Structure formats: structure tokens, C-alpha cells
Amino acid sequence: MRILCAGLATVDLIQRVERLPGVDEKVQSDSVEIAAGGPATNAAVTAATLGAPCGIEVVLVSAVGAHPLGDLIRADLAAHGVTLIDTTPTSTDPPPVSAVTVLSGTGERTIVSRNAGNRAAGVPQGAGPGTALPDADLTLVDGHHPILSTAAARTARRLLVDAGSWRPVFADILPHAEVVACSAAFRHPSASPTDGETDRDAALAEAVGAPSVVVTHGAAPVRWFTTHPPAHGEILVPPVPAVDTAGAGDAFHGALAVALAQNQDLPAAITYAIRVAGVRVTHAGPRTWLSFL
């Protein structure tokens, strides 16, 4: 079984601080860590860790390049069992870098990132004509590289979309999706404005139009909607002591991909993903938490 993740790969510089500095102020961090980041990348690492005992192979397609910073991404992915297909192997431009600051007391984080910036990841070319995206039982896309994400969506057997915030490319991706997992911040331009949060979620699900739509709200219940059969519900998020919330959504999506690939029904898959994201937020650092799964 194979899961394909297509999207952003970054170098994340993570520092923990007791408080955020003010303007023109410096603070000493408690710790510094460097890891590969980006929604699709973190989801791939999560899926590879969860899927390894089940024989699930995870492949990430992204733009990394030949810059020395790219070696940090490659090494992290290899250490966690993710196969990388680099669409820009000869590029000398540095990969995107995200500066992540985590408050030690609450686990809340701030992120400064240019995401993909001007870097465009196309579709990897094979020996013959056409695309060389590997066949997969389930494909996850995050929309950060439009050409790549669209190609992956159109060729996917089953498509899971990480819809963190609206991007124009989603108009081309969403019609191919089986499951769209939206954050509470996601705003579809066709969704009718409503007063209540519940009504807003329902309007979003209708605008997205996928067979299954999931809307996450951090520590609040996750809401889900299906069209065949028409149904909806919500799943509680058990309270946990938050130590580090960076990448919690990515962990959720990676776990959701594994559960869906194993043909769990949607509520069961969401429950599983909630549990995995809960493990993520209770441990500091980008990778330490994986050993507690």
C-alpha cells in the first residue's frame, strides 16, 4: 500500500521561548531545533511512522533542490522512512525556511514563512512521455505548488485535500477530492456567510462539494459532513495539556490519510486522527512525539 503526499517542503527553525520579544527586543530561547516542515511534509512523516508497521509506503513529491539546506530536508525524511521525489533536483535556490517560535508556557506558536515563494514545483518527468507521479492508494495534497497539486489531484485514485486556507488552485483540486479536511480558518469564496459556527461549517461543506468534508476547530469538536449518504456529526477532542501545537494539523492530516487508506469509515478515521494530533501537542519539538505513537 502506498500513500503519496504532494506539496510544500521547508526547513523549519524552531525555538522555544518564555515570552515573545517586543519591537527591537531580543530574548534568549530555551531550545533550538531544525527539521523538515510544510503541511505535506509533516503529514508524510506522520503517515510513514504510523504506516510502517502496516507495510504502508509513503512518498513525498516536492521541490527541494541542490542547495545545502535541502540536505537537511532529505536527511530528516530519510530518517523517518519517507521516500522523496524532488521535482527541482538541480535548483541552487534555497528551499523555503520557516521561523517557528513556540511559547514554552502554553505551546502556542507563531510562524514566519514565505511558503513556496516564487519557487514553482512542476510534475517530475519519467523516462517516457507524460508525468511520473507514482501510483498510490491514496493521495494527499496541500495546494502549495499549484501545478504539482493539480496534477496529483487529477491522477489520484482517492484524494485527501489539506485545506488550511483558501488558495485559487483549490478551485481545480476540490472537484477531484474524496475527503477535504478544512481548518476553521478556511473560507471558500462560494460559501454563504452565516452567523453561527455550526451553520458556517455546513455552508462551507456545501460550497466545497466533496463527498466528505471535515472541519477542525483546534481543541473544539471536529465536525464532518457527507453527501452519500447525507449525514453530519461532530467528534469531541479530548482535552490534553498543550506543550507544542506546531504541526498539530499536519499530524492530523497524516493520520487521517493512514486511516482512510486502511478503509476506516470517516468518523473512525477522524477519531484516530484526533488521537494522533493529541499526542503531537503534548510533546515539545518537531519529531520527539513520534516515539510516543
Rank of each mutant, 00 (worst) to 15 (best):
T110Q: 15
A242K: 05
A210N: 04
H176M: 08
G65E: 11
T226L: 06
A257Q: 00
V222N: 00
A248G: 01
P241E: 15
N263W: 06
S91P: 09
D71S: 14
G81K: 08
A185T: 05
A120V: 15
D162V: 02
A120I: 14
G81P: 08
I3R: 01
D142T: 08
L138P: 00
H176T: 07
P95Q: 13
H253G: 04
D244N: 09
V240P: 03
I56F: 09
L20P: 03
A6Q: 01
D86M: 09
L4Y: 00
P124E: 09
V100M: 02
L236P: 00
A246Y: 11
V243L: 12
A242G: 06
A219W: 02
L50Y: 01
G7R: 01
G249F: 03
P129T: 09
D137A: 15
P95S: 07
E178I: 06
G117V: 11
A40H: 09
I85A: 06
Q15M: 14
V141W: 08
R187G: 03
T106M: 14
T41P: 00
G81N: 04
T216H: 05
D172K: 10
A202E: 11
E108L: 13
A152M: 08
A220T: 03
E18Q: 13
D244W: 12
W166N: 00
T288C: 02
S91L: 13
P68D: 12
E18H: 13
S104M: 02
E108N: 15
V17I: 13
R16M: 00
P267D: 07
R154D: 12
P189Y: 10
R16W: 13
D137T: 12
T131C: 09
I235Q: 02
V32G: 07
A99Y: 11
I56N: 01
A273P: 00
S29I: 03
H176Q: 12
G143S: 06
L60M: 02
T139F: 02
P175K: 09
H176F: 13
L138R: 01
A99G: 10
T226K: 06
G65D: 10
H253A: 11
G51E: 02
D12P: 08
I14T: 14
A268V: 08
A63W: 07
L160F: 03
A136N: 04
D76F: 04
L77E: 01
A152F: 00
A156D: 08
G247E: 04
E197M: 07
R16C: 02
E18D: 15
L69G: 15
P39M: 05
F186Y: 15
L50E: 11
I235G: 05
D76H: 13
C5M: 11
A184K: 06
A47T: 02
R109Y: 12
T198N: 08
T226H: 02
A78W: 07
I85C: 04
I270C: 02
D137Y: 10
P168M: 08
E18S: 12
R167I: 01
A255V: 04
D24S: 14
L159W: 07
V123E: 08
V222Q: 09
A203N: 08
V59K: 05
V17M: 10
H80K: 05
V45L: 03
